[in-house]
Design a protein around this nucleic acid. Sequence first.
DNA 1: GCATCACCTTGACCTGGATCAAGGGCCTGC
DNA 2: GCAGGCCCTTGATCCAGGTCAAGGTGATGC
Lengths: 234, 234
Amino acid sequence: MLNSEPMDTNLPLATAVRAHYLFAGLPDADFETLARQMAAVQLDKGDILFHSGDPCTHFYFVDTGLIELSLISPTGEKKTLEVVGAGRTFAEAIAFMREHRYPVTAEALQATTLCRIPVTPYVDTLHGNPDASMRLLADISRHLRARVREIENLTIQNARSRLISYLLDHIDDSTGHDEATVRLTMPRHVIASRLSVKPETLSRLLRSLTDEGLISIEDRLIFIHRLSDLRLYD
Amino acid sequence: MLNSEPMDTNLPLATAVRAHYLFAGLPDADFETLARQMAAVQLDKGDILFHSGDPCTHFYFVDTGLIELSLISPTGEKKTLEVVGAGRTFAEAIAFMREHRYPVTAEALQATTLCRIPVTPYVDTLHGNPDASMRLLADISRHLRARVREIENLTIQNARSRLISYLLDHIDDSTGHDEATVRLTMPRHVIASRLSVKPETLSRLLRSLTDEGLISIEDRLIFIHRLSDLRLYD
DNA sequence: GCATCACCTTGACCTGGATCAAGGGCCTGC
DNA sequence: GCAGGCCCTTGATCCAGGTCAAGGTGATGC
C-alpha cells in the first residue's frame, strides 16, 4: 500500500531530484530548503496516488516504476493521457491552476518509488529564480504542445495512424537501416487506452499490420520491417 | 488583405494591450520598450495570419474581430481548437517551445485588428519581472488545462454531450431561473469543427434536442428551456 | 495437478457519426 | 431580377470502431 516518509537529503533519491531540470537551476540553499519538505512515497502496483478532483498540493518525481495519468468518466471509462517513468516529474503544472484540484488520476502500473514535492515552497523559490521560472515555462509549454498533438491525433487521424505514430515514437532500437524494434513496456490494454481505442481494436490493428507484412510480433517485442513503408501511413 | 504598420504607443490599441494581464504587471519603462516593437495588423475575413509549421517569432493580441486557431490535416480536414475574440491574446505559449514553429493555423473569421508582439523582447522582460513570469505561467497552465478538458471531451464524451457542454459553457443570458439563452457568434460549421463533428451531425443533434423539447432555436439564438434537464445529459 | 485470474485474441454483430447527394433560404453583384 | 455563392438542413447509406461473447495462454496459489 501507499506509504510515505520524510526524505533524507543525502539519499540517492535527493540526488536524482536535484539533477532534474526543474531543480538543476536552483542555488544549493534554495534546493536544501525545498528538499527538507520533500518525502519519499512507495506505491504498489494498482495503488492510486490521487484521483482527478482531489485537492492538489504536491507534485511528484518518479524515482523507479511507472505512473499512469488518466481521465476517468463518471461511467468508469478510462483514458490514459500519459505514462510517466523514472527520472520524470508529473503534475508540476498544477502549480498555477485556478481550481486547486488534480485534473487527472494517478495510478501505479507497477511498484513505484516517488518523491513528493510541495508546490507552494517550490513556487516561492521561483520568485527569486528567473532561470528556474524559465525552465518551468518551457516544461509546461512542452506539455501543452503534447496535448495539442494528442488532440490532432484524436481528431484528424484514425486509430490505425495513431498506432503507427505510437510505434514510430517508441522505437528503442533502430539498427540504422530501414528497420527497428519496439518493446512494449506496458500491458496492451494501457497502450490501447493511450491510443483511445479498446484492447480488441488494438489487437486487430496489430494483426492487420502483421498480415500486411509491415511488422512482426514476438510477445512484447515488435519488429518493424521497413520504417519507410510504415511511415507512408502516418 | 493582410496589412501591418508600426504602432503608435499612444493609440487606444496600445492602451488595450497594456491592460491585458500578461502586460499589466510590467513597469512602464519595460512596457514602453516592448510597445515600440509591436505593430498593428489588419485582416479581412478569410485571411490566414500564419499556418501551422510556419516559423514563429510573434504572438498576438486581438483588438477587434475573431481569430480561429485550428489544426489542418495533410488531406485538408480542419479541426478548430479555439476561437479567440477581442481582448485576448493567442500564440503566447510559443515563447518556450523547442521547435520554433506555430503548432496551429490562425485564420480571421471576420475583419480583425490585431497587435503583433515579438516574443524575444517579451521573454527578455520576463527575466527581470517575476510577477509577469507568474502571470505567463498561470496563462499557459490555463491553456494546458483547457486542452486536457478537450481530450476528456473527445474521448469519454460523445458528440451529443459535447454539444450540451458547449451550450452550457456559452450561455450569455441567464434569467436566473432555470432557463437561459445562447447566441451563436460563429457560423455553425465552425462550431461543428470545435465540437469535432461534421456540420450535418451538428444540425441533426440540434434537431434532436429541439424535438425532445430541451431547447428551441430561432436563427442564431438558442433558448434552453430547463437548464437542470440539459445538465442531466452532460 | 488443477482452479483462478489477468491478459490477450478472435468472431459476430451493432451503432454513432461520416459521407454522399439533393435542395432550400438568403446574401451580393451585375 | 436573377445568377452564383455560401450556409444550412434532411435523407439514404456506409463504415470504423465499439460491444458482447467465447476461448486460449501463462502465471500464481493451494
